[in-house]
Simulated scan of single mutants.
Amino acid sequence: MNKSLNRWQVIAASTAILLCTGAVYAFSVFANPLSSQTGWTMPQIMMAFTINSAIGPIPMILGGYLVDKGFVKWTIALGAFVFALGFFLTGFVSSPIMLYLTYGLMAGLGQGFAYSGALSNILRLFPDKRGLASGILTAGMGFAAVIASPIASYLIQSHDAKFAFRAIGLAYLIIVGLASFFIKPAPAGYKPEGWEPPAQIQNNGSINRNWLQMLKTPVFYIVISMFFVGAFSGLMIASQASPIG
């Protein structure tokens, strides 16, 4: 089974999917034109991005659980499809509530499932290159906005914001549909040919803890606070990147 599995094909397909789901970070390109087209205020428009960002981490937890249970392909494919469909349906919204359901809820849930599923599976497929593999996926997620922004700007200028959502969303539906065929789950205990896990090395002073013990350590709250500050400030800038630029 290991010999018939092309893990580079899987990471290419996973990255293609994340190049779609990462388009949420290009929302600032859509926000002002959508406000002008619909007459909704910018706070109303930006609430969709807030909901998307708040919802996204929740399915990441559930997605990791489903991957552990063997539902790798379903987690990634279904998440990617829900994201692309939510993006596409945003082009038909007629009220802020609809915007919150399509871009906020659907796209947020889909992105979380697709990302957690893809990352969990790829780390199992690349135990010898975990840093490289996770770096490729993360780069794909981040680079998505670089690709989506100029395309969205062109479509908005030539048509309007809702048309841009529909056109890009349709393209994403096609891409994730094709890429999903190449997603394969990592076999249990997968090891690349010719690679053996390194011997466990005990570092001086290091202690392995379970998650309950981890929550009792002060350093955990310092580290998690750093992550929160970094993530929140980054999302704040991403949501306003176009006006700032």
Rank of each mutant, 00 (worst) to 15 (best):
D68M: 05
T50V: 07
A54N: 05
V67P: 00
G56S: 13
M42S: 14
V67C: 03
L85V: 13
M47L: 15
P43Q: 11
I51H: 03
T50C: 04
I45G: 04
M46Y: 13
I45H: 06
L62W: 10
P57Q: 14
G79T: 08
G63C: 01
G79I: 08
A54K: 08
L66W: 14
F71E: 01
G70L: 13
I58G: 12
L89R: 03
L66E: 00
Q44V: 04
F83H: 14
A80L: 11
S53Y: 11
V67W: 00
M46H: 11
G79W: 09
I55L: 04
D68Q: 15
A84R: 02
G79H: 10
L89A: 11
P57K: 13
F88Y: 15
P57C: 12
T50R: 02
G56F: 06
L62C: 09
M60H: 06
F88P: 03
S53T: 15
I58T: 11
P43H: 13
G79V: 09
Y65R: 13
T50Y: 06
G79A: 14
I45P: 02
Y65L: 10
L66V: 06
F87N: 02
A48S: 12
W74L: 13
V72N: 00
G70R: 15
Q44P: 00
A84M: 05
F88N: 05
V82K: 03
M47Q: 15
W74E: 14
G79D: 13
F88L: 14
L89T: 05
M47H: 11
A48R: 03
G64F: 02
G63D: 01
L66R: 02
P43W: 07
F87P: 02
F87Y: 15
T75D: 04
L62D: 05
